[in-house]
């Protein structure tokens, strides 16, 4: 456990002394702000429209469901692009530079390496969640009517974090199987893209096929979170990917010791 913490602290230090974390935060903030402004803009247009034509509809307009919920849903897609960038260096970089030999020749187990590295990437992810929190804070500070439903927002962020954590576990695994960061990122990106796009395939199907495809889609599982519903199936879905990713990472590191 102490070794895992030492590795965690070292990784966090590297994330925050190199540009990696800051570049991720910057890109993430720019894209999310763009999405936020678009959603806010269309929300305002709708309010205006209803005020002129159909004031009765106004009571159905609310920030949380029409801006923040969709925002989190959109940001989920942004994570498909950003997580590979965060996770690619975790193990690949050490194996390329030779520093991995330090870990291999010291009393450190593959499990400690796996956890320490995983937690450090989760910290970066959690920081991004705090950045998302800025939008509802802005809304609640400046909105003249309506309010932010914080339970819904927090549940949405929880969903986003769990999804990101599942993505990072997948990224960690690919970083463990190659010495090349680029290859690790490409494989992770490809996998995450598939997890997103099976949701599109679901739309073209009906019945059981549709259910199954939707069930596989990482982005679909965030829908419940964004409306404030915590469904066990969604939790199990993300938890499964986390466990699966970490398990495979551990196996990969363990196997390398014997080859």
């Amino acid at each position: 456990m102490r070794n895992a913490i030492a590795i965690f602290l070292k990784e966090v230090r590297i994330y925050f002394t190199t540009p990696v974390a800051y570049v991720a935060f910057t890109v993430f903030t720019i894209v999310s702000s763009f999405l936020f402004l678009r959603l806010l803009g269309s929300f305002q247009r709708n309010v205006l429209l209803h005020t002129q034509r159909n004031p009765g509809l106004l009571k159905y307009m609310n920030f949380t469901d029409q801006v923040l919920g969709p925002l989190i849903h959109n940001i989920a897609v942004v994570l498909v692009f950003i997580v590979p960038f965060i996770s690619m260096r975790l193990i690949a970089e050490e194996r390329r530079s030779g520093s991995y030999e330090l870990l291999m020749s010291n009393p450190v187990t593959p499990a400690q390496i796996t956890f320490g590295k995983y937690l450090s990437a989760l910290l970066v992810l959690a920081t991004m969640m705090l950045l998302v929190l800025v939008y509802p804070l802005l809304v609640s500070a400046y909105a003249e009517v309506g309010h932010v439903a914080w339970e819904t927002v927090l549940s949405g962020l929880l969903g986003l974090f769990l999804m990101g954590a599942a993505f990072v576990a997948i990224g960690l695994f690919f970083s463990a199987v190659t010495r090349s960061q680029i290859v690790a990122a490409a494989l992770t990106f490809c996998t995450l893209l598939m997890l997103w796009m099976v949701g599109w395939a679901a739309v073209d199907n009906t019945g059981l096929t549709r259910e199954v495809l939707n069930g596989l889609s990482a982005i679909e599982h965030i829908r419940n979170f964004t409306v404030g519903r915590l469904d066990l199936r969604d939790l199990v879905y993300y938890a499964s990917w986390m466990v699966f990713g970490l398990f495979l990472t551990h196996r990969a590191l363990e196997a390398q010791r014997w080859r």
Binding site: K10, R13, I14, T17, E94, S97, G98, S99, Y100, S105
Partner: peptide
């Protein structure tokens, strides 16, 4: 153990 190439983290 001192490996052939020192196992250093360039960013630390």
């Amino acid at each position: 153990y001192l490996p052939e190439t020192p196992p250093l983290y360039n960013d630390l």
